[in-house]
Design a protein around this nucleic acid. Sequence first.
DNA 1: GATTTTATGTCAGCCATATTGACATATTGC
DNA 2: GCAATATGTCAATATGGCTGACATAAAATC
Lengths: 151, 151
Amino acid sequence: MRQAIELLYFAYRAFTAEPDAILAELGFGRAHHRVIYFVGRNPGIMVSELLALLRITKQSLARVLSQLVREGYVLQSPGPRDRRQRLLSLTPKATALERLLTERQSQRIARAFARAGDGTADGFRRVLLGLMDDEDRRRFPDPDAPRRAPR
Amino acid sequence: MRQAIELLYFAYRAFTAEPDAILAELGFGRAHHRVIYFVGRNPGIMVSELLALLRITKQSLARVLSQLVREGYVLQSPGPRDRRQRLLSLTPKATALERLLTERQSQRIARAFARAGDGTADGFRRVLLGLMDDEDRRRFPDPDAPRRAPR
DNA sequence: GATTTTATGTCAGCCATATTGACATATTGC
DNA sequence: GCAATATGTCAATATGGCTGACATAAAATC
C-alpha cells in the first residue's frame, strides 16, 4: 500500500515535468495547461463549467484565463441564447500547443504501457477510475457498461 | 490516451485532497506531508538525500523543515561518523500524523482496488512504475525479478 | 598545517497558484 | 421592476517553488 502511494507520487511528478518545462518557456504554468487542455477538450465550455471542472475559484482562473485571452490562445464568444455567457475555445495557436503537450504525455504513457506489459493498461485505468471522486468518475464511460452483444 | 491523461489528473487530485485537508488544520501543507512521509520511511536520512528525493532546493526545504523541527515533528541529530550531517527522524507526534495520513490514502487505494476488481492492482502498479523517471524507478523492486524457485 | 571541499543553514527577493471577501456589470427570467 | 445568474475585478493573504549570495563547521586533501 505504501508502495502504491509512492508510485503515484513519482509517476505524477514525471507525468507533469515535461509539459511544465515546455510551458515555462512560453511564460505559462501548469494552470495554463489545465485551461488549454480542458477548453480544447470541451470547446464552447462556459466559464462556470470550467470552474467546476478545475475546482478553483473564479479569481484564480481569471489571472490565467485573461493572460491566455490577451496572448491570443483562448477566444471568448457570447452564448448564442444567453449573452451573459462567455463560451471558451482555443485559437489555432493554442490548439497546436495543446497537441504538442498532449502528444508528449501520451508518448510517456505509451512507453509506460509498453514497459508494463500486455494487459496492464486495463488495470491501470480501472484503478485510477476507482481512485477519483464519485463526481469526477461520472465523466468517464463505465468500463463495465453492457455493450451491444457481439454476434 | 487522452482518457489516461484525465484519469491521472482526477485520480491524483482525489488522492491528495484528504491529506491536504488534515494538514491544513495543523497549519501544514503538502510540502510538509512529503517531508514527514519520506523521513518516516527513511529514518536517519541526510538532508542532502531528502533534497535529492524531493527534487527541490534546500531553500525550499528549509522553510518547511525548520517549521517541522520548531514544532516538534522532526528531530535532527549529528551523523555518528560525519558530524556535519543532520540526520532526520520523526518524533512520536509526527509518526502518529504520518500514520493517519498514510492510512487515509491507503484506504482510498484499497477502495479503488476493490472497485476496480481482482487482478487490476498489478497493472496499476506496473504502469505507474513505467511512467516515472528511470532514476526514481530504481527505488522500487523489479516486479519481474527472478525469485528463488518455489519447490 | 594550510587549504579546499562538503554538508548544511540563512537572508533576501521573486514568481506562480491558490485562497477569501467585496463589489461591479450585464443579462435573464419571473 | 426586480431578483437571480454569469462573469469580471480589486485587494489582501498563504503556500511552495525558484535564484543568488553568503556563512559555518567539519572533513578531506595537498
